[in-house]
């Protein structure tokens, strides 16, 4: 089974041990356009599934980054503070936050890559 999952909000999560890395999908970045700022959470923040853990800002929009999993923020990608365009350049490679999760079963609710592709097809 793959360790990569997607949400209906066009985010991806990658499970590595007890940690998940959270980012936005390529589709999301293309919809947002030029990303000019990423607001990151603070490390050690406790978050619940559905919480906003950041904001992704383009010139014309500001979208919340919702975490699909509960846990504690253990790392934030500080590179994005100076170079938010990394998300446009490669959304799948550039994670935004890392969360140590309590309950792996929360991931079962999410889509795998094929399901997400179908989901995108339906949306289009």
């Amino acid at each position: 089974m793959s360790n990569l999952f997607f949400t209906e909000d066009h985010e991806w999560v990658r499970l590595e041990g007890k940690k998940v890395y959270l980012g936005i999908s390529d589709y999301a970045q293309s919809q947002l356009g030029d990303i000019v700022y990423v607001e990151l959470p603070e490390e050690d923040d406790e978050v619940s599934a559905g919480d906003s853990v950041g904001v992704i800002e383009s010139v014309k929009s500001a979208s919340d980054l919702f975490t699909p999993v509960s846990g504690i923020v253990v790392e934030v990608n500080e590179e994005l503070e100076d170079a938010p365009e990394l998300l446009n350049e490669d959304a799948m490679e550039n994670w935004i936050v890392a969360i140590e999760i309590n309950d792996e079963s929360e991931l079962e609710e999410l889509m795998d890559e094929d399901e997400y592709k179908n989901f995108l097809g339906d949306e289009a």
Partner: peptide, 12 residues
């Protein structure tokens, strides 16, 4: 920085 403003963020 208009993304902070009401016409984009609405109630946020």
């Amino acid at each position: 920085l208009q993304a902070r403003e009401q016409h984009i963020r609405r109630f946020k």
